[in-house]
């Protein structure tokens, strides 16, 4: 159902671009937004509305992640410029709730893109992920921040 809606959306976008006659990025994205809302209005009574809620969730997660990444980058920049004797690095073990390959890959990429944390390896039975962190004052708080900040929104989208 989601694939069908997405293909319909792309087709309506192409129709819009052909009708207006200009294949620029601005026009294509405008057509995509318009056909998205048209599809939303058309299928208001249909029971499966996952396609419409997931789009807003993905956009929200994208901006949330951008904000987190900028914030952590500023923190690391401060750390680089000043004397670096109060870091507490270490390797910690985090139990995974993500199950499939795609979820684990996305989660590892997101953790590695946040400055200050780095995924070293995932165990062979896919239950545990080993993370190298820069600020480990409190181990439980560190793991809790990763679980609540990255894993839960990601699983919320993927499932």
């Amino acid at each position: 159902m989601m694939k069908k809606r997405f293909l319909l959306n792309v087709m309506l976008t192409l129709v819009w671009a052909a009708l207006t006659g200009s294949f620029t990025y601005v026009n294509l994205s405008f057509g995509f937004i318009i056909s998205f809302f048209v599809l939303w209005i058309i299928s208001r009574d249909s029971p499966d509305r996952r396609y419409f809620t997931i789009a807003f969730k993905i956009i929200g997660f994208f901006f949330y992640f951008l904000y987190e990444m900028l914030k952590a980058n500023l923190q690391v920049a401060y750390e680089v410029m000043t004397s670096n004797l109060h870091m507490k690095p270490g390797f910690v073990k985090m139990e995974l709730e993500a199950q499939t390959d795609l979820e684990i890959t996305l989660l590892a990429s997101l953790i590695s893109l946040t400055p200050g944390t780095l995924v070293i390896d995932v165990s062979d039975d896919r239950k545990v992920m080993y993370i190298h962190g820069m600020y480990l004052e409190d181990r439980a708080k560190f793991i809790q921040s990763i679980k609540a900040g990255l894993e839960k929104p990601l699983l919320n989208i993927m499932r």
């Binding site: 004797l85 870091m87 507490k88 690095p89 270490g90 390797f91 910690v92 073990k93 139990e95 070293i120 390896d121 995932v122 165990s123 062979d124 039975d125 239950k127 545990v128 080993y130 480990l136 181990r139």
Partner: peptide
């Protein structure tokens, strides 16, 4: 030298490099 924890120590198989979860 200021690294505080290393929970990965001893988890790798030294021959095959397989990683156990040790739960």
């Amino acid at each position: 030298k200021h690294t505080i924890t290393d929970e990965l120590a001893g988890r790798y198989d030294s021959e095959s490099h397989a990683l156990e979860s040790d739960l």
